Amino acid sequence: MLTVDFDRLGVGAGSSLIDVGCGAGRHSFEAFRRGADVVAFDQDVAELNNVDAILQAMQEQGEAPASAKAEAVKGDALDLPYDDGTFDFVIASEILEHVPQDEAAIDELVRVLKPGGRLAVTVPRWLPEKVCWALSDEYHANEGGHIRIYRADELEGKVTARGMRFDHRHHAHALHSPFWWLKCAVGVDKPDNPLVTTYHKMLVWDMMSRPWVTRNAESLLNPLIGKSVALYFEKPANSPSSAA
């Protein structure tokens, strides 16, 4: 389930991409399929081991072009171990809401991006997230949980303040918002609740089968209750490699 629109981002063969806070690797896998040289970057060793195993399997089974390279790297998003202007593309999907020093993290995202390169940042959308917080403290008040709710304009301003040019915004995963509202209402520690399990089965069916009825419904609902907001930026070609 991708949050970033790779066609809009423009990832292709021969490009370099870092997926900061890659988690289970969904965006890293898509970039690798498209022929990019990928760094799947995270601080969670267990997740990275799984991501690395899948990347290797993809290469062995020919699911990525032979020319593409991929590696899983452990590290801190506040101190990326790469030179200024290393990557053509940077993705940070659903991580900034977890990071106390979010502006320092944004500095790093911008710093490692090449002039002329593109950045995609996604975070939980303000309204669906507010509903979750209102319904459940457990949803966010835990170790490593969400520590802030962004308004899209606020996040856009934080990125453009570092010399980036805003390009586009869209919303995604509207069908997931009611699922999380249900989980928060019944208790996030109660995954076996019948309402939650029934809705989850529908989401799995949607992701696996992609029927027109749910795809059209989500497309119509995304502007209203999309669970995530995705923002796209470009680093001006005449920009210095390091963040301001």
Rank of each mutant, 00 (worst) to 15 (best):
Ala105His: 07
Val11Arg: 06
Glu47Leu: 12
Ala230Pro: 12
Phe32Ile: 05
Leu224Thr: 05
Ala92Ile: 07
Gly187His: 11
Ala68Cys: 11
Pro223Gln: 01
Glu63Ser: 06
Gln56Trp: 04
Thr3Gln: 11
Gly14Trp: 10
Ala141Tyr: 02
Ala36Asp: 06
Thr86Ile: 05
Phe41Ala: 06
Leu96Tyr: 01
Asn142Gln: 13
Gln59Arg: 13
Ala174Asp: 00
Ala161Trp: 04
Glu103Cys: 03
Leu175Thr: 01
Arg33Pro: 07
His171Ser: 08
His168Tyr: 14
Glu156Ala: 11
Leu224Val: 15
Pro100Trp: 07
Trp181Ser: 04
Lys74Met: 13
Gly117Ile: 12
Asp84Tyr: 05
Gly226Ser: 03
Ala92His: 06
Ser28Tyr: 03
Val110Arg: 04
Gln101Thr: 08
Ala36His: 02
Arg169Met: 13
Ala244Trp: 11
Arg26Phe: 06
Lys69His: 09
Cys132Gly: 02
Gly145Pro: 14
Val99Asp: 00
Glu218Ile: 11
Met202His: 04
Asn49Thr: 12
Gly116Trp: 11
Gly10Val: 11
Gly187Asp: 03
Gly144Ile: 10
Gly116Ala: 10
Ala161Cys: 04
Phe89Asn: 00
Glu47Arg: 04
Gly144Asp: 07
Gly187Thr: 12
Ser239Ala: 15
His140Ala: 14
Lys190Gln: 15
Asp83Thr: 10
Ala36Cys: 10
Leu224Pro: 00
Leu9Ala: 04
His168Pro: 05
Thr197Gly: 06
Lys190His: 15
Val38His: 01
Asn50Pro: 00
Gly226Asp: 09
Pro236Asp: 09
Ala152Asn: 05
Glu108Phe: 03
Asp79Ile: 00
Asn216Pro: 00
Val51Asp: 00
Ser16Tyr: 06
Lys227Gly: 05
Asp76Val: 00
Val229Cys: 07
Arg34Ile: 12
Ser228Asn: 14
Glu234Arg: 10
Cys22His: 00
Tyr139Phe: 15
Ala64Gln: 01
Arg169Asn: 05
His176Gln: 08
Val186Cys: 01
